[in-house]
């Protein structure tokens, strides 16, 4: 009996001391968490996709707590529903969520460009990319083995004639495909963007022209004709500034493009 007591008492005493220290420490050094944080976090879908520009849903919720000026319509997968519940919770004016869709910046299908090798390896763009930069002539373009289609949770991407195509009505704008594409030719663009550049080649015009009849040759015709300065040719490739592009009613740039690599999105 005595042995048990001599063993138990020290352990109990050490336990009590530890408990006392921890309780005082947690009381003294408690960090205040914003009360609204759990509620805001509850509104967000929890996909942690990062489409809002913050590090996951927690990051966005924290930014909403800390900074009054954080817009409430940044959650793309949540759409208007999240934006509405956030506006109720935070007493801010409702703003429609900016819907974004994925766009594959390549139009080099099998009629416009050729394969340089006959690829018989794994059915994966990532694997094909490791082998001489992909099977196609153009190393910037779509490899067409459908890594993006495989990861798309909405099955909104299909490879047609060797180029991935996005079904805009099914796309939620999560951006997983953009992260997966080994050539980084998929990006998220506003769903109502008027004009999209359908090429990613940074080769010089003459080189691009030889490899693909639909490639951007960097002639700057679009840059010169755009009334709002929304298209700029950088590194032999036209790039659109979507915020400026929205102000335009026409599509002068696309009409003037000699290779037709600017497409007009009809709404």
């Amino acid at each position: 009996m005595e042995e048990i007591i001599t063993a138990v008492i020290p352990v109990v005493i050490i336990g009590i001391i530890c408990a006392a220290v921890l309780v005082t420490a947690s009381k003294l050094m408690a960090v205040k968490e914003d009360e609204r944080f759990p509620e805001i976090r509850e509104c967000l879908p929890g996909a942690n996709c990062g489409a809002c520009g913050f590090a996951g849903c927690d990051g966005y919720a924290k930014a909403l707590c800390d900074d009054e000026d954080t817009p409430i319509n940044l959650c793309v997968p949540g759409g208007d529903g999240v934006s509405e519940s956030l506006s109720k919770l935070l007493g801010k004016e409702f703003a429609a969520a900016q819907k974004q869709t994925a766009a594959v910046h390549c139009s080099g299908d099998c009629t416009k460009t050729q394969d340089k090798v006959e690829y018989k390896g794994m059915e994966s763009c990532k694997a094909a990319k490791l082998l001489y930069g992909g099977k196609g002539d153009c190393t910037y373009g779509c490899i067409g083995l459908g890594d993006c289609a495989a990861v798309c949770p909405e099955h909104a991407i299909m490879v047609i004639d060797g180029v991935a195509r996005v079904n805009k009505s099914a796309c939620t704008g999560c951006g997983i495909c953009a992260k997966t594409c080994p050539n980084h030719i998929i990006s998220l663009v506003p769903a109502n963007a008027r004009v999209t550049v359908m090429c990613s080649s940074k080769d010089k015009g003459a080189v691009t022209r030889k490899l693909c009849s639909a490639g951007c040759i960097g002639c700057k015709k679009c840059e010169k004709t755009c009334p709002n300065g929304a298209v700029i040719v950088k590194d032999n490739l036209a790039v659109t500034d979507y915020s400026k592009c929205m102000e335009c009613d026409g599509a002068v740039c696309a009409e003037n493009c000699p290779v037709g690599c600017l497409t007009i999105n009809f709404q």
Binding site: G15, C18, A25, V31
Partner: peptide, 30 residues
């Protein structure tokens, strides 16, 4: 000194667990 060597495992677990918890609280604050 008190011939309690056999309590080593349980006491060490207790102390280390409490210590790590304490360090976490302190780090979170400061």
């Amino acid at each position: 000194p008190h011939d309690l060597g056999y309590l080593q495992t349980i006491v060490f677990i207790l102390v280390i667990a409490a210590l790590v918890q304490l360090v976490e609280i302190v780090l979170k604050r400061y």
